[in-house]
Design a protein around this nucleic acid. Sequence first.
DNA 1: TTGAAAGCGTTACCAA
DNA 2: TTGGTAACGCTTTCAA
Lengths: 343, 343
Amino acid sequence: MSQQRKAPTMADVARMAGVSPMTVSRAFKSEASVKEGTRRRIRDAAEQLGYVLDSTAAGLSSRRTGFVAVTIPSINNANFAETVKGLTEGLKPAGLQILLGYTDYDTAEEERLVEQFLRRRPEAVVVTGGVHTERCRKLLSNAGVPVIETWDRPSDPLDAVVGFSNAEAAKLMVEHFVGEGYRKIAFIGGDTARDRRGLDRRHGFVEALRRRGLDDRRVLAHGVPPITMREGARAIGELLRLWPDTEAVMCVSDLSAFGALSHCQRAGLAVPRDIALAGFGAYDIAEHANPAITTIDVGARAIGLNAAETIVRLLSRRDEGHDAKRIAIEPRLIARASSLRGG
Amino acid sequence: MSQQRKAPTMADVARMAGVSPMTVSRAFKSEASVKEGTRRRIRDAAEQLGYVLDSTAAGLSSRRTGFVAVTIPSINNANFAETVKGLTEGLKPAGLQILLGYTDYDTAEEERLVEQFLRRRPEAVVVTGGVHTERCRKLLSNAGVPVIETWDRPSDPLDAVVGFSNAEAAKLMVEHFVGEGYRKIAFIGGDTARDRRGLDRRHGFVEALRRRGLDDRRVLAHGVPPITMREGARAIGELLRLWPDTEAVMCVSDLSAFGALSHCQRAGLAVPRDIALAGFGAYDIAEHANPAITTIDVGARAIGLNAAETIVRLLSRRDEGHDAKRIAIEPRLIARASSLRGG
DNA sequence: TTGAAAGCGTTACCAA
DNA sequence: TTGGTAACGCTTTCAA
């Protein structure tokens, strides 16, 4: 019901229980010393009045808001979801709640979101990636709380970093392809700089090809992040028109890899016999597709857990050195039928 | 950087700009009347100090926190993501931000989350589904703000409702199957009551079968929500062992339908020739699978938009009657190759 | 257009 | 174990 009857306050509860507001305040913290009987009376009164603690007032007074702001690019992504779960779990023991926001892969939106969050005085901020607007960087630097950049290893970090090199991860795939005997190798990704992590993968991939003296022009950019099945399907169609002799293709994510796989099969191409395919991210679909799709597991959950641990550490002993402010996660290639010669 | 230098306040900005704190406050609201020069001086001072408004203090004073609490079961779900996007867009013009939380399909977790949110004094609360713990219901009823239940049509709503009948939606699929000539029809879903919406689909499905005098025992429950590809694959294996002559199967979601499809194909069964398949939710994968999977589009985005509109309405004219507190969304069946006789 | 005073609901701090 | 008092940083309200 949406009646605007004014919410009861501690004073109301105190009056009803016959104690001072201060005692009510204590009765709601498990550590504080309140006689058991008093505590029960207070709890009962609160229950009866439908009292709910006002944590904005509490935060104002105690200067502890008890939450960590977390921004992710998308709320429809298994990997970011895992990172958030890791964060949630890792922060729970410290009594920290997370408040979640999504940026739609847009740094301007990220800036707005970060500012909104900062106004609520989070005790730490977790952002995805290492690319932000200039103003956003400034806001975060000035916030006076720990800032964790995740999913990347920026060269000019704001504060702490928990991530991996997307470029290095993509190189794993080139090695895998080459190991399987493929030489005409292509990459399919998004066509804007919005998804910086995807762009880094492409750069790493191309560089690895170049180093091995392989043709590095087979790179196609299609669609705005999030890159989905549709973009993968369209891109591989175009790729095969431009370079029909391509032997192996890495897609920027498993979703676009599946779109590509599906397109190939509809076009009568067998995977991996006619063309090898691989994705990125170790999504469920890569495991369940026919054939199963070779991919890279980035340890999304570990990112969240490590970020949480870093926050708790930075929050407890603020003054110690800048040690362990840069945690590396190791991506891992999962070879599957879609790219195996014998597949 | 995470130094704990105390954040500057309005008083600091005021001092620097040579005005009173009150004028600083005004300078940050676009409607308030402040001389242009004064405003610029204040903005500059704020910029220089790295001042960020403290909206917890602002909310305490003005009794307007400017946010809507939103809880969804999962942050890895295209449908809920669409609903959230609809909400975000619909609330932006009203100056309302959303704060997001996820429950993992667990009403106990929902209760904890709702309580945490309520402590921050949201101006409205949006929850998914119509099933909550008793205490959660009480908390929401007492909150004194609009509460919107979505994705369902509970018979005993807390306040406003924007949703559809999952049972009715599932009946659409029975009609479709029967129309295509199938008679031995099955349903695959989750095995707990955690996902009430999935359970409702099953109930509606079974009831529709019964009404038509068809065998209604071919129902399999497998796995805990969220039901994924893996559960779909396992369940259809078991289903075909128990009732090998089954002609058509609806899965509780497109993800499990894809798992089932994949399993069938690996087992050498052709879809729909040997067995027809359908899902729920109009996920990308249903469109891109081979064959494409018949599904039901529930209008996830419309749910979010309508919920936002309802909130804005309830917030502006509080006293009017209980009209339009129950908005119906119409799910729509999308017939695809996976269930078509000619497929 | 600007300012002063009085809260908003809570907790830190000190005293009993 | 309990209570009183003074903030916390802002906006409302009224006055200039």
